[in-house]
Computed example of a mutant assay.
Amino acid sequence: MDCRVVVEAAVPVYDVENEDEAIRIAIAKTGEMLNPDLNYVEINMRTWVTPGGEELPPAFIAADEALVALELEMTVFNVEQEEHASRIARKEIGQRLENVPLKVLSVEVLEEEEEEEETQPDGSGGGDTIPDFDDLVKDD
């Protein structure tokens, strides 16, 4: 089975003046650490919503230093359990993001393509079929 894993990362950023600058620097810094080995990991901002419905920014700034919350998404292939997928994602991302705390937020099992192909509306079973030998050989 294949799984889509979302991991939260707390990325420290130094010498910043505002939240937008901190977020841009954190995304760039994370991208540099992940590339080229993990260039398939998607990097997004993480936002929170208070119980009152107010959206909070992903960056917290104090004394020109920021802690930025990012979501890192990756697909893990050929795993047996969701827990296995989360461990693989944490290990792969964690090896490249040294001293950055990580937390698995979600693991989503992806649909298998083979199962989708088997249920064609015309009842053919989908997929490619191999022609018979007689069909390949023409009689002259």
Rank of each mutant, 00 (worst) to 15 (best):
C3E: 01
K29M: 07
L67K: 04
T119F: 08
I25G: 08
H84P: 03
A62S: 10
V13H: 00
E111G: 15
K103N: 11
L67Q: 02
Q95T: 03
L34P: 06
G123D: 02
P36L: 15
L70V: 08
G126E: 11
V11I: 11
L38F: 14
E73H: 10
E17N: 08
Q95H: 07
V104S: 12
G123I: 01
E80D: 11
G123A: 01
V41K: 00
L72C: 00
R24A: 06
C3I: 02
L56G: 09
K29L: 10
V76K: 01
L38W: 12
G125V: 08
R96T: 03
I25S: 06
P58F: 09
R4A: 07
D134P: 06
V104N: 05
E98V: 13
L110K: 14
A69S: 15
D64C: 11
A28V: 01
N39P: 06
E55T: 11
G31Q: 11
T50E: 12
E114R: 15
L97C: 04
R24T: 05
A22D: 07
M45V: 04
T50P: 10
V7H: 03
Q120G: 12
K29E: 10
V6H: 04
E55H: 09
M74V: 06
V76L: 07
E114N: 13
T119P: 07
G126L: 15
V100P: 02
V16T: 01
D135Y: 14
E83R: 09
T119H: 15
M33G: 04
A28F: 00
G126T: 13
K91S: 00
D140T: 15
D139T: 14
A9P: 13
A63Y: 10
D122V: 07
V109A: 07
L34N: 10
V41E: 00
G123N: 04
I61D: 14
T75I: 08
V5S: 07
R24P: 00
V6I: 03
E111N: 15
V41W: 00
L102S: 11
L67R: 10
D37S: 02
